[in-house]
Nucleic acid binder design. Structure first.
Lengths: 196, 196
DNA sequence: TATAAAAACGATCATACGTTCGTATCTTGG
DNA sequence: CCAAGATACGAACGTATGATCGTTTTTATA
């Protein structure tokens, strides 16, 4: 046998990424075998290597992709908003929305950080740091403008991020609580903790 | 060869648990091999089976132990405290302290939940639920007593827990911020978000 | 339309894994 | 002080894994 009719690199690549997200999210990176992945995509195990360099590379690609998108979108979201309070609100709303929509990516991006080789991990951590800086930047501006009262900006930024990211572990879009309501609750929680 | 001079079941068992915590925390459960674990303890791989039933059993033991201790200690901590505000403060202080001290256990207890067999996972999730209920119980009492103003107790409890637990990923006991300071910052953040 | 590149197959490799087992030695309770 | 149980060794097992390779067929370029 050999190349299958109708096979296209783009499609297969996308299918591999999609199946990879699913499997890694459900079982973890180490627990997912390339044979499982290949079966899901409808390929023989060896054929995966026409599309990925190594298993490690697939993981890095998935996470890197996610982080770059996250940064691009938050910057697009904050563009043109000046007032620190509005920027903070926009950050909260975006963060929650994105984390609901890309649950798998977010989870993998934090849970499987340690499965990355040191070199790869460093790059991802730098991107994550850049994202965190978007929030602490807003907080600092707000403090400087005497809008916010914050004991420790760095710690508060971590605390807020942890709180917002936490929804990934329990939130069900089809459940009792709507997206708008979720954002409102969290916005109020954060603002009360931060406003002067 | 055979039994080594000075070998004692209690000691080996403890060494296995300690090394297991270290390795699973650093590499993840799947990534840790029993050969690695045995080497760390100073044993041949097969000898581990004098002390553990299976690899899965070791993981369950570690997590179960952690959860039971967590519950015992929060109950001891809250004992005798009546006022909801004081109870909330006590919860925050305890949670942070415990999560600093038992960083590895806490991390494993959440990150490796999915590595547990369904039967085991169910038991752990029930214990975690019980712990969460300690917090939401306090919040509810506070709302009933018109001390707290909370949009949604369940969501807020999750949000607060996520925020407090988040320190595990970044806090360094030897760093810039002391334990007392950490507790103060978080207490203020939570209380401002919750008080009427 | 000829030709190079892309994509898939199927077999296979070396390795690492969790676990079992027979045996030998140490520790301890009666 | 001796017998029974506990503890460890070292070899081995079957299996699963990530990865490679030669080959074949399809797609796309020029």
């Amino acid at each position: 046998m050999s190349r299958t009719a109708g096979s296209s690199g783009k499609k297969t690549q996308a299918a591999i990424r999609e199946a990879g997200l699913d499997l890694i999210y459900a079982q973890g990176f180490d627990a997912m075998s390339l044979r499982q992945l290949a079966a899901r995509v409808g390929l023989q195990p060896g054929s995966l290597y026409n599309h990925i360099a190594t298993k490690q590379d697939l993981l890095y690609d998935l996470i890197h992709n996610h982080m770059v998108t996250l940064l691009e979108r938050i910057d697009a979201e904050l563009e043109g908003i000046e007032h620190p309070l509005d920027r903070l609100k926009a950050f909260i709303a975006f963060h929650l929305t994105y984390h609901i929509e890309r649950k798998r990516e977010v989870f993998i991006g934090s849970a499987e950080l340690r499965s990355l080789e040191p070199r790869n991990r460093k790059k991802i951590v730098a991107l994550r740091r850049a994202y965190e800086d978007r929030l602490s930047g807003i907080l600092e501006t707000g403090v400087a403008g005497k809008l916010f009262k914050i004991d420790d900006v760095a710690v508060s930024a971590y605390a807020i991020l942890a709180m917002l990211t936490g929804i990934c572990t329990w939130y069900d879009p089809k459940g009792r609580i709507g997206r708008r309501e979720l954002i409102d609750i969290h916005t109020r929680l954060v603002l009360q903790g931060v406003l002067k």
